[in-house]
Nucleic acid binder design. Structure first.
Lengths: 260, 260
DNA sequence: TCGTACAGCGTACGTTGTACGATGTACGGG
DNA sequence: CCCGTACATCGTACAACGTACGCTGTACGA
């Protein structure tokens, strides 16, 4: 088979999850034997496995093995795997380098935000596969959110529009990054990279697809295939899409009669 | 735990997969007992299960049970689950209603393409979770591709740009739809819908987030939360994002000096 | 008529998250 | 100083998953 798991986070009690994310010291126990590890070590080990071998390799057994403990020991640090994913993601957010771009034009600032997120997904590809519908509301995300909103501050948008524009850019960057993850997973599982896959299929498809009934598909499909060497080029799609997105946001900013 | 599987397709031999997608009759056997089912019945059963209970419920055992046969019987119709996903997706593409929009302005045509895809994901939410990096190159996709390229034909873009713009729109619609799937899966697993989740977290977060160090996050976050009743509103994000995207593409079309 | 190609499928294996309960540790009240 | 108890650790077990293997029975071609 060939599944690439994406996982959902935030499954359990919100208060408990927030206490973990913010490392609430009051939650620490008083009696009993000393703990061999701490939460940061567990999260770091999980991230190391995910970076090296993908999110599928992050199993409770594997992370425990990495730390030299039994699988069930992890459950004394965390309620379950969903919370581990929340903590991994918030830690990844916290680790992002954030260049100060004050004074530059908003378009440059927003492009930098997109590139920073693209770099995040390049460093931690697994992060692109985690749903952010219910994001980990930890210190890492909050710092990231504050920084990214600054790119959209003072250009004439209201608060909701600022959030809308940021969401749009981040959704796009994440969607682009998922393709890169899929490409890696596909290569790993089928021992065939995208170019080989496309080369194997393009010839066969040419015999099945009638250019008479599908003139545009035949012409444009082969033009795009030839240009990218495959059915899809994630790098090109990112650069092209980001420019269109910024143009679209510029139209909104101009409609609001903005300075800078 | 809380995984929402997305699955990869196109794992095996490309020629075999294409023969299945295009229902190559020459691949049918000559001797042996009569078959109780056909490929279309298997695919239809799998789609029915996925529509009703999500892609996670589509297991080989479950689909077989739905058809009144043993699990291993499916392997006489298909090489494996990856091919089943390819066939499901191509069948879903083939089933999309396609209104003729010739004569209308390109922006309306492209918005219609986006809405048609959004409707696909509304009818078959599971389709949004399948990677399309290596799409099922079957008749359903080819018809869809031809139809969608027509929306971008004759407006001054070259072949590669037409494919780029279509890819951008489809990537965006799919990313939006994934959020809707995640929302449903989250509700199913945590017995808490997005508004309840946000209500439970917003109050707790307010005590952890310092408005002094995170002024924008506090202000914009609560404005957006109040506007949507949650951390994220997929429906609003779709409408907002599509308008920006079309504006961005319009800038490209104008730069090419287009008519219509 | 019968050899053989094929359909159907029962069983089994290795993998997952995690519930349960046994065992051992070390703190705090007497 | 000492022991009850709260806690850490983790071996075992279970119900899923995809699918490899090999057996049984069918029906076509010679």
């Amino acid at each position: 088979m060939a599944p690439v798991a994406t996982a959902r986070s935030s499954a359990g009690d919100p208060a408990r999850t927030l206490r973990l994310l913010w490392r609430d010291a009051a939650a620490a126990p008083r009696r009993g034997p000393q703990r061999a590890l701490d939460l940061d070590a567990v999260v770091a080990a999980a991230i190391a496995v995910a970076d090296a071998e993908g999110l599928d390799a992050v199993t409770m057994r594997r992370v425990a093995e990495e730390l030299g403990v039994g699988a069930m020991t992890l459950y004394t640090y965390l309620p379950g795997k969903a919370e581990l994913l929340d903590l991994m993601l918030d830690a990844a957010y916290a680790s992002m380098p954030r260049a100060d771009a004050t004074g530059r034009p908003w378009r440059e600032r927003l492009a930098a935000v997109a590139d920073e997120n693209r770099a995040l997904f390049a460093a931690h590809a697994w992060a692109a596969t985690v749903s952010t519908l219910r994001p980990p509301l930890g210190p890492g995300l909050m710092t990231k959110y504050e920084h990214e909103l600054a790119a959209l501050d003072g250009i004439g948008l209201d608060d909701v529009e600022m959030d809308d524009c940021l969401t749009l850019v981040l959704t796009f960057v994440q969607a682009s990054a998922r393709d890169a993850v899929d490409a890696r997973a596909a290569r790993h599982q089928s021992a065939m990279d995208d170019e080989q896959w496309w080369a194997a299929n393009a010839g066969l498809l040419a015999r099945l697809l009638d250019p008479g009934t599908h003139p545009l598909a035949s012409r444009v499909g082969s033009a795009a295939g030839a240009a990218h060497g495959s059915a899809h080029d994630p790098e090109h799609a990112y650069r092209f899409g980001l420019e269109r997105l910024l143009d679209g946001i510029a139209a909104l900013v101009e409609a609001r009669g903005a300075p800078r």
